[in-house]
Simulated scan of single mutants.
Amino acid sequence: MHIKPIKTEADHRAALARIDELWEAEPNTPEGDELEVLVTLVDAYEETHFPIDVPDPIEAIRFRMEQQGLEDKDLVAFLGQRSRVTEVMNRKRGLSITMIRKLHEGLKIPLECLVKEYQLVK
Rank of each mutant, 00 (worst) to 15 (best):
R18Q: 02
V42E: 08
R13Y: 04
E31H: 05
P55E: 04
E59I: 13
A14R: 07
G106R: 00
I109N: 00
L35M: 06
G94K: 10
E24F: 14
E9F: 09
V115P: 04
D33I: 13
Y118T: 12
M1L: 10
V88K: 03
D74H: 10
A77G: 06
Q81K: 15
L35G: 06
W23M: 07
E59L: 14
T29I: 05
G32N: 08
R84D: 12
K102D: 07
K122E: 12
E66P: 05
Q119V: 13
P27T: 10
H104A: 10
Y45N: 10
D56Y: 04
E87H: 10
E21I: 01
N28E: 15
M89L: 12
Y45F: 14
L16S: 00
L38F: 01
P5N: 14
S83N: 14
Q81M: 07
E59R: 11
E117Q: 15
D56T: 08
E71M: 11
R64D: 06
K4S: 11
N90L: 05
K4I: 10
G32I: 03
I3R: 05
D72F: 09
R62A: 05
K108W: 01
A14I: 06
R64M: 12
D11T: 06
L35P: 05
W23L: 05
D74V: 03
A77F: 07
E47I: 08
D72V: 03
R13A: 10
P57K: 06
V85P: 03
A10D: 09
E36F: 13
K122R: 12
C113T: 12
Q119T: 15
F63M: 11
T86Q: 07
K92R: 15
G69Q: 02
L22R: 02
D56V: 06
H2C: 04
L35H: 05
L41Q: 07
V76A: 14
P110Q: 12
L35D: 03
L114K: 03
F78R: 01
H104K: 15
L41C: 08
H2A: 12
K116R: 14
A14V: 06
K108Y: 04
A44V: 11
G94D: 12
T86E: 07
E21H: 00
I52T: 14
K108R: 13
V39L: 14
V88I: 13
V115L: 09
R93F: 08
R13S: 09
M1S: 11
M89S: 03
P57Y: 06
E87Y: 08
L79A: 01
G69N: 01
R62C: 05
E66K: 14
K108C: 08
A15C: 02
I58G: 01
D33P: 06
K122Y: 07
I109V: 06
D53I: 04
H2I: 12
A60C: 13
D33Y: 12
F63S: 15
M99D: 13
V42F: 03
I52A: 11
C113S: 15
E31S: 09
A44N: 09
S96I: 10
I97H: 11
R18V: 00
E105K: 14
R62G: 03
V37Y: 03
E59V: 12
V42P: 12
K4R: 15
R18W: 00
H104E: 13
